[in-house]
Simulated scan of single mutants.
Amino acid sequence: MKRYRNLDGNSGVAAYESGDGFIRIRFVNGETYEYTDEVTGRAHVVNMQKLAQAGLGLATYVSRFVHDAYARKL
Protein backbone atom coordinates (compact mmCIF):
# COMPACT_ATOMS: atom_id res chain seq x y z
CA MET A 1 0.00 0.00 0.00
CA LYS A 2 1.02 3.54 -0.65
CA ARG A 3 1.13 6.00 2.23
CA TYR A 4 -1.60 8.64 1.99
CA ARG A 5 0.00 12.09 1.85
CA ASN A 6 -2.62 13.68 4.13
CA LEU A 7 -1.97 17.26 3.02
CA ASP A 8 -4.41 18.77 5.50
CA GLY A 9 -2.78 16.84 8.36
CA ASN A 10 -6.08 15.66 9.81
CA SER A 11 -7.16 12.65 7.74
CA GLY A 12 -8.53 9.35 8.90
CA VAL A 13 -6.81 7.64 5.94
CA ALA A 14 -3.35 6.12 6.43
CA ALA A 15 -2.70 4.33 3.12
CA TYR A 16 -4.30 3.18 -0.11
CA GLU A 17 -3.84 0.83 -3.01
CA SER A 18 -5.68 1.12 -6.29
CA GLY A 19 -5.96 -0.54 -9.64
CA ASP A 20 -8.38 -1.00 -12.49
CA GLY A 21 -11.84 -0.97 -10.92
CA PHE A 22 -10.92 -0.87 -7.24
CA ILE A 23 -9.38 1.05 -4.39
CA ARG A 24 -8.38 -0.31 -0.99
CA ILE A 25 -8.18 2.15 1.84
CA ARG A 26 -6.47 1.60 5.19
CA PHE A 27 -7.72 3.92 7.87
CA VAL A 28 -5.67 5.16 10.81
CA ASN A 29 -7.52 2.72 13.10
CA GLY A 30 -5.94 -0.13 11.09
CA GLU A 31 -9.08 -1.26 9.28
CA THR A 32 -8.87 -1.75 5.51
CA TYR A 33 -11.80 -1.63 3.12
CA GLU A 34 -12.05 -2.41 -0.58
CA TYR A 35 -14.34 -0.37 -2.81
CA THR A 36 -15.06 -1.69 -6.32
CA ASP A 37 -16.79 -0.58 -9.49
CA GLU A 38 -19.36 -3.36 -9.11
CA VAL A 39 -20.40 -2.56 -5.53
CA THR A 40 -19.50 1.08 -4.97
CA GLY A 41 -19.90 2.37 -8.52
CA ARG A 42 -17.35 3.35 -11.13
CA ALA A 43 -17.73 7.11 -10.62
CA HIS A 44 -17.11 6.83 -6.88
CA VAL A 45 -14.06 4.60 -7.35
CA VAL A 46 -12.56 7.00 -9.89
CA ASN A 47 -13.22 9.96 -7.60
CA MET A 48 -11.60 8.19 -4.65
CA GLN A 49 -8.57 7.25 -6.75
CA LYS A 50 -8.10 10.89 -7.75
CA LEU A 51 -8.43 12.09 -4.15
CA ALA A 52 -6.01 9.42 -2.95
CA GLN A 53 -3.40 10.52 -5.47
CA ALA A 54 -3.94 14.17 -4.54
CA GLY A 55 -3.56 13.37 -0.83
CA LEU A 56 -6.54 15.48 0.15
CA GLY A 57 -10.23 14.88 0.85
CA LEU A 58 -10.42 11.09 0.71
CA ALA A 59 -11.72 10.44 4.23
CA THR A 60 -14.36 13.14 3.84
CA TYR A 61 -15.48 11.67 0.51
CA VAL A 62 -15.78 8.18 1.98
CA SER A 63 -17.76 9.51 4.94
CA ARG A 64 -20.16 11.53 2.80
CA PHE A 65 -20.74 9.31 -0.22
CA VAL A 66 -19.69 5.67 0.13
CA HIS A 67 -19.37 4.89 3.84
CA ASP A 68 -21.02 1.46 3.88
CA ALA A 69 -20.88 0.76 0.13
CA TYR A 70 -17.66 -1.24 0.30
CA ALA A 71 -17.13 -4.58 -1.41
CA ARG A 72 -15.34 -6.16 1.54
CA LYS A 73 -13.45 -5.51 4.72
CA LEU A 74 -9.94 -6.94 4.61
Rank of each mutant, 00 (worst) to 15 (best):
Y35K: 06
M1A: 12
T36D: 00
G41R: 03
D37A: 06
A43G: 07
L58I: 13
E34R: 15
D8N: 14
F65I: 02
E17A: 13
Y16C: 11
N29Y: 04
Y16S: 04
K50M: 11
V46K: 07
V13G: 04
G9L: 07
H44S: 14
M1L: 08
V46G: 03
H67Y: 09
I25W: 04
E17G: 09
A71D: 11
F27A: 07
A14L: 15
Y61K: 07
Y4Q: 07
T36L: 10
L74F: 10
G55A: 11
Y33G: 00
R64D: 08
D20R: 12
M48C: 01
R64S: 08
V13H: 06
Q53K: 13
T36V: 03
R26L: 08
I23P: 05
N6S: 12
G21L: 01
D8G: 10
L58G: 05
E31C: 04
Q53Y: 03
N6W: 00
K50Y: 02
R64L: 14
H44N: 12
T36W: 00
V66R: 01
L51R: 02
D68A: 08
K2Q: 13
D68W: 05
R72D: 04
G19I: 14
D20W: 09
V66T: 09
F65H: 13
H67E: 06
K50G: 08
A15G: 09
A14D: 14
M1G: 13
A69S: 14
T60F: 14
G41L: 02
T60P: 00
K50W: 00
Y70S: 02
A14H: 09
I23A: 02
T32D: 01
Y61T: 00
R42A: 12
V28Y: 03
Q49A: 05
R64E: 07
Q49S: 05
E31L: 11
V45T: 08
G55S: 05
R26D: 01
V13Y: 09
L56T: 02
T40L: 06
N29Q: 03
Y4G: 09
A15N: 08
Y61E: 01
F65P: 00
Q49T: 10
K73I: 04
T32R: 06
T60Y: 13
G21P: 01
Y4P: 01
R72C: 06
G19D: 10
G9N: 11
G9E: 06
R72I: 05
M48D: 00
Y35W: 03
V39E: 10
L7C: 05
L58V: 11
A71E: 14
L51W: 12
E34A: 15
G55I: 07
Y16H: 07
M1F: 08
A54Y: 12
E34G: 12
L74N: 03
G57W: 07
V66D: 11
D8P: 05
H44Y: 13
S63H: 13
R3C: 02
K2R: 15
D20P: 10
